[in-house]
Design a protein around this nucleic acid. Structure first.
Length: 653
RNA sequence: GCUGGCGUAGCUCAAUCGGCAGAGCAGCGGUUUUGUAAACCGCCGGUUGGAGGUUCGAUUCCUCUCGCCAGCUCCA
C-alpha cells in the first residue's frame, strides 16, 4: 500500500497500519503537536487503520481543522470532569467554537462559579492522567441500548434521529464515553492548557419550548502562553467595550427614564456622528444620489400596502390612533422612498433614481436582545433605494460595491468578507427574475475581482442580496453593509416607468445600507479604535494647555487661532499641574496636546505631544495647522482632492 | 420572551450573622504657580432602581415590578 505524506516522504506501508504508525514508519515524528490527520481528504483519528493508498496530511493546532479537533477533545475532557463531579448531569452536545468550545448539560440547577472552578481543576487533572481516547463503532440499535443503559436520555434522542442502518461512533477515555462523530486527539494529555470561562442557559436544540440546559464555555491552547495571550485578548475586548468607552468618553448614554434601546447622543458623540454624517452626505451627492427626508409616522395603510403589517408586525411598535385612523411609527424607510418615486410618472430616461436618507426607524426588539449601541430600538439607517431598469442592475450594484469599500476603508476597515445569498424556499418573484438578479449581483462581485462566498438559500423572501462583513482591529467580524434586490415592493406598490416602447414596465428596486445603522456602526467604530478616534473624527482634536497662569493669554490666543483655522480645539487654563492636564487629555484620547510655558511664549511656539506620549517637538501655530491638516487628510481618501480645490475642511470649530 | 447573575453618591467599588450606609475619583471652596499620565487641605454629595411584605429594626430575607449583564432565540 502506497502512502504519501503531504509535502513529505512517501513509501510502502503494510495495509491495516494506523495513520500514526504509518507516519512514524515514513520517518515523520508523531509528536504531541499532531492531533489528527487529513487522509484522502477527510479528517480522521491518528488511530484510524489505513486500507488503501493514501495521502496523509498531519494536522496540528495551527490549522483550522486541527484546532477544531483539539477544542472538540477539550470539551469532552470538560464533560468527563463534569460527569465525575456531578454524576447525574446528562450529556447533550458539545461542539468546538472559533475560539474555544462549550458543552451543554442537563442538570437540576445552574453551575455556580465555584462549580466551574472545581470542574476546571478536575479537567486539568484529566489532562495529566493522559487517558487514551479510543473510537468504537456500533449499530444504531446497539448505540441506543448502550446510552439507555448509561441513563443518557439526550444521547438516545440524538441517535434515534439518525438515519436507519447508519453506524454510530462513540469515543471513550477512561470511564467516560460520549457519542461523537470525532475525530479526536490520541489522548487527553494532548491538550496543553485549558480554561473554563462562563456558564449560561441554552435551550435543548436551540428551541425555547425545550428544556433549558446548562452550558459551560471554555477554551484551550497547546501552551500556557497561548492561553494567556488569548485571555489577554478577551481583556482587551472588555477594555474596549463601547458601552464602557462610550460612558468614559461621555459620548452616549442609554437611560432607564427614557427607555431601553433608546440612545442619547452627548455633545462629543454627537460631534463624531455629525462628522460621519457630513462625510456620508458629501459622498452620496458625489456618487449621484438624491437625498430625501421622510416622517417618523405614517398611516397604517401604507404599512399594509408594503406588507410590513403582515410580515413584520412582531418587530413594530403598536399603532397609534390619530383622529380615528391608525398611524404607525416607521420601522423602515422604503415605503416613503417608493412614494416619492410614485409622485411622478417616470420615464426610462430618468433611471436610475437613487434616493438616500439617514432615516431614523423604530423597531420593537425583545428585551433580551438589546445590547448597548449594537442592538437598539431606535436607530438611523444609512439607507438608500435605487430604482433602475433590468439592464442597469449590474452597473448599479458595482457602483454600490465600490462605494461601500470606499466608505468602510475611510473608517479604518481593511478586511472584508462578501456573501452572496440566493433564493430561499419561501419566496416571491418569478424564476426568471431571481436568476437574472442573482446573476447581476454575482457578475458585479466578479467584475470587481472580490472573493466571496455563496450562502445558498440565504436571501430574503423578496430577493437575493449581498452582505459585506468587516473585520475590526481585534479580528472580530461585523455585518454592516447589505445590498438587497426587492421584487416584492415594486409589485405591491405597482411601480412603473414608461419604456422606450411607450409601454409601462416595472423597475428593479435595490435596498442598500453601507454602514447599516449609525448607532451600531458607531458602537463598532468605538471598539475598533478603542475610543482613540483618528484626528478627522476626534471630537476634540487638540488641547492647548498652559503651565502657569503667566501663559493664559498666549494659550487662549493659540486656541483661538487654531479654531479659526477650522479645528476642534480646547484650551485647558485650569490651575493644575501640567502632568494632571496631560493625564486628563490622555484619558479623553485627544490626539494632540499643545503645551506652552514661558519658553514657548518666548519663542512663539507650542510643545506638541502626540496621544500616548510621542514628543513631536516645538513648532509655531502654523506648524501645528500643517500637522493637523496632514493628520486630518490621512484617513480621508477624498480630502486631498478637496484640499487642492481650496474648499474648507469638514471640521467644525 | 426564556434561564441565570446583578442594581448602593455623577463614576469605580465597600458595608461581618438583619443592628447608626462608607472610601477613592469627580464636583465645589481654599492653599499652591506648577514642564509632559494624579499637588495639598476642607466641604458637599444617598428615599441603597421602584412598590409591597416579614421584623423592634431591612442595603441585607420574601413577593411583585423596572432596568442592566451573560447566554439562548432573533437581528441593522
Amino acid at each position: 500500500m502506497k502512502v504519501t505524506v503531504k509535502d513529505g516522504p512517501s513509501g510502502d506501508v503494510q495495509t491495516g497500519q494506523t495513520v500514526g504508525t504509518a507516519l512514524s514508519a515514513l520517518g515523520v515524528p508523531v509528536g504531541i503537536d499532531i492531533v489528527a490527520a487529513r487522509v484522502n481528504g477527510s479528517v480522521v483519528d491518528l488511530s484510524t487503520p489505513l486500507r488503501e493508498d493514501a495521502v496523509i496530511e498531519p494536522l496540528r493546532f495551527d490549522s483550522p481543522e486541527g484546532r477544531e479537533v483539539y477544542r472538540h477533545s477539550s470539551t469532552h475532557i470538560m464533560a468527563q470532569a463534569v460527569k465525575e463531579l456531578f454524576p447525574t448531569a446528562q450529556l447533550t452536545i458539545g461542539p468546538a467554537l472559533e475560539d474555544g468550545f462549550y458543552y451543554d448539560f442537563a442538570y437540576e440547577r445552574p453551575f455556580t462559579p465555584e462549580d466551574l472552578e472545581k470542574i476546571e481543576k478536575r479537567a486539568r487533572e484529566i489532562l495529566t492522567r493522559n487517558l487514551t481516547i479510543t473510537r468504537k463503532e456500533l449499530s444504531k440499535q446497539e448505540a441506543i441500548e448502550f446510552f439507555k443503559a448509561r441513563g443518557e436520555r439526550y444521547k438516545v434522542e440524538l441517535i434515534e434521529n439518525f438515519p436507519e442502518g447508519e453506524q454510530v461512533s462513540i469515543y471513550t477515555q477512561g470511564d467516560f464515553v460520549d457519542l461523537c462523530r470525532g475525530p479526536h486527539v490520541p489522548s487527553t494529555g494532548h491538550v496543553g492548557a485549558l480554561k473554563l470561562l462562563s456558564t449560561a442557559g441554552a435551550y435543548w436544540r436551540g428551541d425555547e419550548r425545550n428544556p433549558m440546559l446548562q452550558r459551560i464555555y471554555g477554551t484551550s491552547f497547546p501552551t500556557r502562553e497561548e492561553l494567556e495571550a488569548h485571555l489577554a485578548r478577551l481583556e482587551e475586548i472588555k477594555r474596549r467595550d463601547h458601552r464602557k468607552v462610550g460612558k468614559d468618553l461621555d459620548l452616549i448614554s442609554v437611560q432607564d427614564e427614557i427607555g431601553p434601546g433608546l440612545v442619547l447622543w452627548h455633545p462629543k458623540g454627537a460631534m463624531i456622528r455629525l462628522l460621519i454624517e457630513n462625510f456620508w452626505r458629501e459622498q452620496h451627492i458625489k456618487d449621484g444620489y438624491e437625498l430625501v427626508y421622510s416622517p417618523h409616522v405614517a398611516r397604517l395603510d401604507l404599512w399594509k400596502t408594503s406588507g410590513h403589517v403582515d410580515f413584520y408586525r412582531e418587530n413594530m411598535f403598536a399603532a397609534m390612533k390619530v383622529e380615528g385612523s391608525d398611524y404607525q411609527l416607521k420601522p423602515m424607510n422604503c415605503p416613503y422612498h417608493i412614494m416619492i418615486y410614485k409622485s411622478h410618472l417616470r420615464s426610462y430616461r430618468d433611471l436610475p433614481i437613487r434616493y438616500g436618507e439617514l432615516g431614523t426607524v423604530y423597531r420593537y426588539e425583545r428585551t433580551g436582545v438589546l445590547h448597548g449601541l449594537l442592538r437598539v430600538r431606535g436607530f438611523t439607517q444609512d439607507d438608500a433605494h435605487l430604482f433602475c431598469r433590468p439592464d442597469q442592475m449590474e452597473m448599479e450594484v458595482s457602483r454600490v460595491l465600490d462605494f461601500t469599500f470606499l466608505m468602510l476603508r475611510t473608517f479604518g476597515f481593511a478586511d472584508f468578507e462578501v456573501f452572496l445569498s440566493t433564493r430561499p424556499k419561501e419566496s416571491v418573484g418569478s424564476d426568471e427574475h431571481w436568476t437574472q438578479a442573482t446573476g447581476a449581483l454575482e457578475a458585479a462581485i466578479k467584475n470587481r475581482h472580490i472573493a466571496y462566498r455563496v450562502d445558498q438559500g440565504g436571501g430574503a423572501f423578496y430577493g437575493p442580496k449581498i452582505d459585506i462583513k468587516i473585520k475590526d482591529a481585534l479580528g472580530r467580524s461585523w455585518q454592516c453593509s447589505t445590498i438587497q434586490v426587492d421584487f416584492n415592493n415594486p409589485e405591491r406598490f405597482k411601480l412603473s416607468y414608461i419604456g422606450e416602447d411607450g409601454k409601462a414596465h416595472q423597475p428593479i428596486m435595490i435596498h442598500r445600507a453601507l454602514l447599516g445603522s449609525i448607532e451600531r456602526f458607531f458602537g463598532i467604530l468605538i471598539e475598533h479604535y478603542g475610543g482613540a478616534f483618528p484626528t478627522w473624527l476626534a471630537p476634540v482634536q487638540a488641547t492647548v494647555m498652559n503651565i502657569t497662569d503667566h501663559q493664559r493669554d498666549y494659550v487662549a490666543a493659540v486656541a483661538a487661532e487654531l479654531k479659526a483655522a477650522g479645528f476642534r480645539v480646547e484650551a485647558d487654563l485650569r490651575n493644575e499641574k501640567i502632568g494632571f492636564k496631560i493625564r486628563e487629555a490622555e484619558k479623553a484620547k485627544v490626539p494632540f496636546m499643545l503645551v506652552a510655558g514661558d519658553r514657548e511664549v518666548q519663542g512663539r511656539t507650542v510643545s506638541v505631544r502626540g496621544r500616548s506620549g510621542a514628543n513631536l517637538g516645538n513648532m509655531p501655530v502654523s506648524g501645528v495647522i500643517d500637522l493637523l491638516r496632514a493628520e486630518t487628510a490621512r484617513a480621508r481618501p477624498d480630502v486631498q482632492s478637496i484640499q487642492g480645490g481650496g474648499l474648507s475642511f469638514p471640521n467644525c470649530a
